[in-house]
Amino acid sequence: MEKEVQVIHIMKELSGRWTIPILLSLDKSGGRFTPLKNTLQISPSRLSSNLKTMTEAGLIQHLSPFERNHPLLPEYELTEKGRFMKEVALVISNAEYRLNQGFLAAKAWNWPVLIALYYQYHEFNAIRQLLQTVTPRILSKRLGELYEKGLLEKTLITNPRPKYTYALSSNTEPIIRSTNSNLSALL
């Protein structure tokens, strides 16, 4: 149970439109704001907001003027936690390439839901309880979107009360299994 919670917590931390792209591009841009902005094609305010959030989460650190290559230009570098999360981001990117469904991590809760299903949480309330902070509305939306993409299957159970159960599709399960194995190896 402990490993499940760790993997899901990591997936929640990496969910969001810009977290993984920033982690994967920070070193290539030399940690500098403008090259990073240009590489990602992101607005300065959005990048600044994401960098602040990632700094608060302990993924990156803002270098002081004395540590920078140019004292007037902002620079960032990955922390130890950020380097670990970059390795996780590479595993997720590889899995998303194999799933061929686009950038799933761009939407919060996609990956935590997939991992919950891998860990045999098949009912809506069980998934919600495992993910803790997800709202019923967003969980329902993510399950529906993942179902439409063919990444999971849902089955209607009528007794004793009608309800859906969810499972990874036969094409998705081996990819999520190897992804989970790779993530567990990093822990």
Rank of each mutant, 00 (worst) to 15 (best):
G82L: 01
S181K: 13
F33E: 04
K81V: 09
I22H: 07
T19C: 11
R137S: 14
I115A: 12
K86G: 03
A57P: 03
A185N: 14
Y166G: 07
P174M: 12
S181C: 00
T19R: 15
N171L: 13
S184T: 12
V5Y: 03
T53E: 14
L36H: 13
M85Q: 05
E67A: 15
A167D: 06
N171D: 14
E56S: 11
A126M: 02
L40W: 09
A167P: 00
F84N: 06
T179H: 11
Q101C: 09
L26S: 05
N69K: 15
N38G: 07
T19K: 15
S170L: 14
F33H: 03
G58S: 10
I42C: 10
P21D: 12
S170I: 13
H9V: 00
I8R: 02
L63A: 14
R128L: 01
T39H: 07
L156W: 04
Y121V: 01
E96A: 08
E2K: 13
L23R: 02
E56K: 10
E4A: 08
I8A: 02
S140E: 07
L73E: 15
A167L: 11
E4N: 09
K86E: 12
S170H: 13
T135R: 07
R98D: 12
F124A: 08
K81M: 09
T133M: 00
E4Q: 13
N50Y: 09
T39P: 00
V7E: 04
L14A: 12
P21Y: 06
G102N: 08
Q132M: 01
Y121D: 09
R46F: 06
K12L: 10
V91G: 03
V91E: 11
L146G: 06
R128N: 04
G102R: 06
W109K: 07
V7C: 04
T55H: 05
R161F: 15
M54K: 14
I60F: 06
I176V: 15
E148A: 13
S93I: 01
S181F: 08
G30E: 01
L131P: 04
R46L: 09
T53Q: 11
N182F: 01
E148D: 15
I138H: 09
L99N: 12
F66T: 15
G144H: 06
L51Q: 10
I115E: 05
N180M: 06
W111K: 02
A105G: 04
L139Q: 07
T34M: 04
L152N: 05
A57R: 10
P65F: 08
E123D: 06
E80N: 05
N182P: 00
A108K: 06
L36F: 08
E153D: 09
A106I: 04
A108W: 00
S169G: 12
A89T: 02
D27G: 00
E77D: 11
